[in-house]
Simulated scan of single mutants.
Amino acid sequence: MSESNKTTGVNMAGGLTSGPKIQNMTEVAAILAVAIVIIGGAEFLLRFFEVKEFVMPTPSAIVTALFEHSGEIAPHLGYTLVELAVGYTIGASIGMILAAVITQFPFVEKIITPYILLLVTTPMLALVPLLILNFGFGYAPRIIAVALAAGPMVMINSATGFRRVDQDKIALARSYGATTFQIFTKIRVPMAMPMIIVGLMMGAIFSVITAIGAEMSGGGFGLGSKLTTFSSTLRTAEFFAVILILAIMGICIYVFFSWLGKKLAGWES
């Protein structure tokens, strides 16, 4: 890595970047100062103009609602996490398997590609009412929707990574008698890891969006359901408290996959 990249800490693992690293406490103080100005400014302006809480609550009211109603919100967070864990695991696993198959067997790719494109271009939320009609208001329709949202994202990015392998490396491996399976596991998978991680991250983000949308369509449980309840009853502070939880979930997803990219694909930097 060049000296300039070491300084800025840029991680080019498949497009995932950690951005410039914090170098000293001055930068930490600057980041905190900006946050204080934004949050404090919003608090001041909302109070100064006496904006009604049901229109736009103050940041302090949102944080207060988050803690005061944590007992009401926490169980629904658990329901959402279950849907995400099961649906994402199923979708990502199928996506990885399909990516491996279509890159090894071009004929299979020709058969399933139209259906994959159909899944990618079709908003999964549009299918939720149909899934609810067939599977009821329980976990099943939400898990299916999440799996359908995550799978294509993982498959497309993983397949792209598998195809970007240096053919000279594969030819050299074959000349030493490596089998197709050995080439795939020892060369294709490690070299494709940056794109695989990008696909996993995109799949996770789409999973959260789909899960919340599916919960808002009906069922009476999950964070999406609470969003619908809070908005319809003008409990705006609680509504934004749930939004804050979802924002934190999204940040956690990004941070986790950025860390994973450094661990598994840091060599590309």
Rank of each mutant, 00 (worst) to 15 (best):
A204E: 12
M202I: 04
I205F: 04
I205Y: 06
M201N: 13
R188Y: 09
I205E: 04
S217H: 01
F206L: 14
F181E: 09
Q182H: 05
I187M: 04
Q182Y: 11
I209F: 03
F181K: 04
A214R: 02
P194S: 07
F181Y: 05
I205H: 04
M195P: 00
M216N: 07
G199C: 14
A211I: 09
V208H: 02
M201Y: 08
A204V: 10
M191V: 14
I212M: 07
I183W: 06
P194M: 09
Q182K: 14
I205G: 06
I212V: 15
I187T: 08
R188L: 03
I197D: 12
A204D: 05
G203A: 06
M216P: 00
M195C: 01
M216G: 07
F206N: 15
M201G: 11
E215H: 09
A214K: 08
F181V: 09
Q182E: 09
P194L: 01
P190W: 11
V189W: 07
S207T: 08
F184G: 10
E215K: 01
I187A: 07
A204W: 05
S207K: 02
I197Y: 13
S207L: 02
M195T: 05
V189Q: 05
T185C: 04
G203S: 14
K186A: 10
T210M: 14
I196V: 15
S207P: 01
M202G: 11
M202E: 10
T185H: 13
Q182V: 03
I183E: 00
I187H: 00
T185K: 13
M202T: 15
I209A: 15
I197G: 04
M216W: 05
A204Q: 02
Q182G: 08
F184V: 09
L200P: 00
P190G: 06
G203V: 13
M202H: 07
T210Q: 01
Q182D: 04
A204G: 11
I187P: 00
I197L: 15
A204T: 12
G213V: 06
V189C: 08
L200N: 03
E215V: 12
M193A: 12
S217Y: 02
M195G: 00
P190T: 12
I197T: 08
V198H: 01
V208K: 06
I196D: 14
F206G: 02
S217E: 03
M202A: 12
P190Q: 10
E215Q: 14
A214Y: 04
F181C: 10
I197F: 15
I197V: 13
K186I: 10
K186M: 10
Q182I: 00
I209Y: 12
M195D: 13
F206E: 05
P194N: 10
A211Q: 15
L200F: 14
T210E: 05
A204Y: 01
V189A: 15
V189G: 04
A214S: 15
Q182L: 13
S207R: 04
V198C: 03
I196K: 02
I212A: 10
R188M: 10
T185Y: 07
K186W: 13
K186E: 08
T210D: 02
M193E: 02
I209P: 01
M191C: 09
F184W: 06
I209C: 02
G199L: 12
I205K: 14
V189F: 15
F184N: 14
G199I: 08
I212D: 10
P194F: 09
V198Q: 13
S217Q: 05
M201H: 05
K186D: 11
